[in-house]
């Protein structure tokens, strides 16, 4: 029962981790995943989040085996 967590770009650098796993707890939301993965560091403003590679808002619940990603504003093209 776990959730995979990924971080990208300057967020990955500032946290010093690119990926980790956290224990899945029934009812946990994306914000709970952030707190578990970062030891409750303050979430930067403007951070984008994705669950299983689709954009989602922080207050939605996650499921066991989900992949949750946190990253800053994108800048491709």
């Amino acid at each position: 029962m776990a959730v995979t967590v990924k971080f990208f770009a300057n967020l990955r650098e500032s946290l010093g981790i690119s990926a980790t796993t956290v224990d899945y707890v029934q009812g946990m939301k994306i914000s709970d995943v952030w707190n578990a993965a970062t030891k409750e560091r303050e979430m930067p403003t403007g951070l984008l989040t994705a669950v299983n590679m689709d954009y989602e808002k922080n207050d939605i619940p996650v499921s066991d085996n989900d992949e949750v990603a946190f990253f800053p504003m994108v800048s491709g093209g």
Binding site: M73, V74, S75, G76
Partner: peptide, 27 residues
């Protein structure tokens, strides 16, 4: 397509300047 790509496709640019590096924070 270009505008959507710029705003939603998860790419991040890190520029190498003369003396340092920096992440591009917005397009």
């Amino acid at each position: 397509i270009m505008e959507e790509l710029k705003h939603h496709a998860p790419f991040w640019k890190k520029e190498t300047l003369v003396a340092t590096e920096r992440w591009v924070e917005k397009n």
